[in-house]
Amino acid sequence: MKGGFRRGIAGLAVAGAALLGGAGAAQADIIQWSDTFVGVRYGATYAEPTNNTDVEKVIVQGQHVSGWTYGQNFINVDILFDLSKSDEPAKDGASPAKEIYAVFREKLSASKIFGLGFGGWVRDMGLTIGGDLSYKDDSFNARVRKFVIGPTIDFDVPGFWSVSFLLGTESNNNSILSPSVGVDFEPAFRLETAWGLPIPIDIGVPVTFKGFMNIVGPKGPDGFGQNTVTEILLDTAIMFDVGAPFGQEKTFMVGFGYQWWKNKFGNDPEFTGGGKKLGTEASVPQFVAEFHF
């Protein structure tokens, strides 16, 4: 790892250490519950726009979720490693491309702040604020910067299921053009939903159906002046709590997942692939493993 990629990882490591240290100090007074894990995902058919080759990747993941006095914190960091430079080379052409992508969401709870009660299917409602940051060392040299805000509904189901209706802004970088240009997209509406639902079957270990889906509306012209289209990302998995039979429930989980990404990054196949999908749609079976602590 070189240059900006290495600096990005170092910065996130420092921020993560500060966050976890602060959370530890405040645990007794503020933090009500937390779940932190490190994990890995593997797939062989990821897609990248304008790339007609399936991209094999290993994704190292760190995630922290916690409930506190007035809401809920969510932080996820993915470090994505391409396994072959022939699939997708780094910008220097000497190694496979690498990417780091971080997501932060803060949900402020109406029931916790105002003492509101909800009935029926609704467990809670609130306001979500957050953002995304990324860096990738390929020829496009992506640097995603997003800000989102909007209401969230938590449904009263076993486990959890939330739906957020957000307005988002986004900027990025395009180094394929010479000189490289920054791109400020138009504000766009987003639907973000996430779930973790226990599956009531008896196979000797607890089973969970988990995942998320994002739907992002058109966000105006991209860095090539082409109009973007609606983007859909689905990432889900069936997870088996294999530590439970050994007295380590909710600690070590493995499973099988699937990712479907249509019009990736809002790219229109009519432009990117001349009417073909050409890297704008991914269909990826995944192996998933997580260690929770």
Rank of each mutant, 00 (worst) to 15 (best):
N172L: 02
G11Y: 02
E231H: 07
G16S: 08
D156C: 04
G8N: 03
L167D: 04
K262D: 13
Y46G: 01
P179W: 00
G273W: 11
T251V: 15
N174V: 12
D82Q: 06
S180Y: 00
Q61P: 00
G71T: 01
G8E: 02
V38T: 13
T152A: 08
A142M: 11
L197V: 15
G115E: 06
L167Y: 06
K85M: 09
H292S: 11
G120R: 08
K219H: 12
F265H: 05
F293A: 11
F185Y: 15
E281Q: 10
A17C: 03
L167R: 09
L83Y: 05
G115D: 05
G67L: 09
Q72K: 10
T50A: 13
I238S: 02
L116Q: 13
I232A: 05
G3W: 08
Q61E: 12
V58A: 14
K276I: 06
T272G: 00
L197N: 03
R105L: 04
K98S: 05
F291I: 14
A282R: 03
F271T: 14
G130E: 01
A282P: 02
G93D: 02
F240N: 01
F104V: 14
T128G: 01
I129W: 06
N214Q: 14
V207A: 04
G62E: 03
N76T: 06
I79F: 10
T236Y: 10
V60S: 09
E270K: 12
E290M: 12
G225L: 05
I59W: 01
I199R: 07
G131A: 06
Q226A: 15
M125W: 07
S95N: 09
F118Y: 15
F293T: 12
A244G: 04
S283E: 12
I79R: 08
E270V: 12
V148E: 11
I100G: 01
P179I: 02
F37H: 08
V288T: 13
R6H: 04
E270Y: 10
K98V: 03
P221L: 12
H292D: 03
P218Y: 13
G257Y: 14
